[in-house]
Design a protein around this nucleic acid. Structure first.
Lengths: 340, 340
DNA sequence: CCCGCATAGACATATTATGTCCCACTTACC
DNA sequence: GGTAAGTGGGACATAATATGTCTATGCGGG
């Protein structure tokens, strides 16, 4: 069921990174031998001292030879490198993909879980777990977390555990109601997240398509006003990304808007904004709360979406996403994204 | 050719130990849950703080749950533990065997390489490599190393590499000639070791069975005298262990002694001493140099011997060996030793 | 013959691991 | 119902390790 590597990833999470680093060094030395530390260090983006420690280790293991002309692989090293090349492809395929994907999309980090949530429903749980882990790592102490709706976010909520509670979190819905099922509404999800982590949440219920006067009066409501302030000062936004047509149809979208969305060739949707393939906003659900431009002010922006069918939507949204974005996705989507 | 684990052992040698430690903790928690840190720490022979760090890590990985009543496995933890149990048997079988063997023989450390040198000749090379690694780890700076003869020691000599040279070593034969082939004589091996490590060596050639007067005059020889002083001040002794009958026959042993050795049911031999199963010395080759009683004065005593047929010899010798002994052996011998 | 690149040493500093106590709390047993 | 033993967690000094930075010195090609 679990492979050796999966177990090791769980039991020594740093192992993979270290293996990759050392593999990379051997690989480079193999290519450039004989080579000196400095040039190697700049080639690999490591500081000289760190590389030096690694090199000393490799020398102790008799994998490389060091002479006054530079470093080169020993016969053991060559042998090992050869064996490693095959293994690394399988093992750290995902880690490599993460690097590649984050570079390609121009975002801070990509986290990939194995599987494809289109095919295997449990992969959504893995997405949830990975997201939870990411939140745990990134957030210390008191935090406000703004959350959107959607089935993926609901899965994330399910996977949160109370051991995060210590951190004093407050969940707020990122935007006013944008007409999903109650089950997948931001309000519901916030409540569930708060419940799972023994923390607090706020609600924000406002109808879509508010008129000007309605808006003015709603905005003056002290409760609402406070929530909005909290949203704007959130340190993390957690949001899903949806397929544009699916989302539009699932929501109570007016016939008129539906046509507009379809005609504009929208492919992606995120917190009420619809994007075409070029990343342009072709439609937005008018509601109060977090706006697209606010994202750049927020420290951690975490997008969660998986499944190969969502690749286009993710790609579209990522054209517009702030560079501080963290994407949590699955192998299915990631492969598509890298290909496309 | 190389398995994943072999590669990992080379690329991150600590990994295995850490995995074992964490596996052990999970295992114990599974057995004793709910259990507290302190009682766990004493059960496992870890200090409380170290265990605490590990426990915090495991908690971060959601493998265990911590409550005020103690620690217990989470469902993830149970699942992982189950998978680990199977894997650990294969993976760290050797590490476990090393622990067990050193405990059983009452020696400082047992190092086991996989394979059986009776069946696969290349395993002797692995023994050599492991011995070289051990020397590297244990010896810093200036050292005198006393070496005996035998084909195993010859294999060790072959595997030494010049990157050890920095350490300023001096190889000396542990004892006077005890009648082996030139190829496997201590003098020859010392020379080869020195050659392979760019270091120095001394020779000690004295005939066996010296008469009293002969002995007196030899001992006065300044050269010999110096070598003997060096032997006694060695910081490491490297010796093989042989099968008694084989060794006796291979050497130019007198008919009389051969009968004596056979009748006394000698099974093991090491640097000219013959041992029966009880570890008693039943015969010794009279020669100058290191004597059995001198071993306890020497910091590092490394015995190298592999092959399942040598198990009895190893067991016999180990009954008499100082507790500071380090045994380098192979899987074939180790299994026999643990069984018997 | 010298310049550029090489390793290796040295050392201050940042980071992490570890040993040691102590405290407040729960629980189970008397 | 009270007490004792066991629990997790906080705090902090200290040891060990990793890292950044600078320097000395050696080797080889132009």
């Amino acid at each position: 069921m679990y492979s050796l590597i999966d177990i090791q990833k769980r039991l020594l999470p740093d192992m993979l990174a270290v293996m990759q680093k050392r593999y990379g060094i051997l690989h480079y030395i193999g290519l450039m031998e004989p080579v000196g530390r400095r040039s190697l260090a700049v080639s690999m983006g490591l500081t000289e001292r760190v590389l030096r420690s690694e090199v000393e280790f490799l020398k102790d293991q008799n994998l490389i030879r060091i002479s006054s002309t530079g470093m080169s692989l020993s016969s053991d090293g060559k042998e090992l490198l050869e064996a490693l090349e095959g293994i690394m492809r399988d093992i750290s395929g995902i880690a490599v993909m993460e690097q590649e994907l984050s570079r390609k999309l121009g975002i801070r980090q990509a986290i990939i879980v194995s599987g494809n949530s289109d095919e295997s429903p449990w992969v959504k749980q893995e997405l949830g777990r990975a997201t939870a882990m990411c939140m745990k790592t990134r957030l210390k102490g008191k935090n406000i977390i703004a959350v959107t709706g959607g089935s993926t976010m609901a899965a994330v909520a399910e996977m949160l555990t109370p051991d995060l509670a210590e951190r004093d979190w407050l969940f707020v819905p990122a935007r006013g109601g944008i007409g999903e099922d109650v089950k997948n509404q931001a309000n519901t999800i916030c409540a569930k997240m708060a419940d799972h982590t023994d923390s607090r949440h706020r609600v924000l219920y406002v109808p879509d398509q508010v008129s000007r006067e309605m808006y003015e009066s709603i905005i003056k409501e002290p409760n609402i006003k406070e929530v909005i302030t909290q949203i704007k000062s959130a340190s993390m936004v957690l949001h899903g990304i949806g397929d544009a047509i699916t989302m539009a149809e699932r929501r109570k979208t007016s016939e008129e808007d539906l046509v507009k969305i379809k005609q504009a060739k929208a492919v992606g949707e995120s917190f009420g904004y619809y994007f075409n393939e070029g990343g342009e906003v072709v439609h937005k659900v008018q509601t109060i709360g977090l706006q697209l431009d606010d994202l750049s002010e927020i420290e951690h922006v975490v997008a969660v979406a998986g499944g190969s069918t969502k690749a286009k939507a993710i790609a579209a949204y990522m054209k517009r996403a702030p560079s501080s974005t963290i994407l949590v996705t699955d192998e299915g989507a990631a492969k598509q994204l890298i290909k496309g």
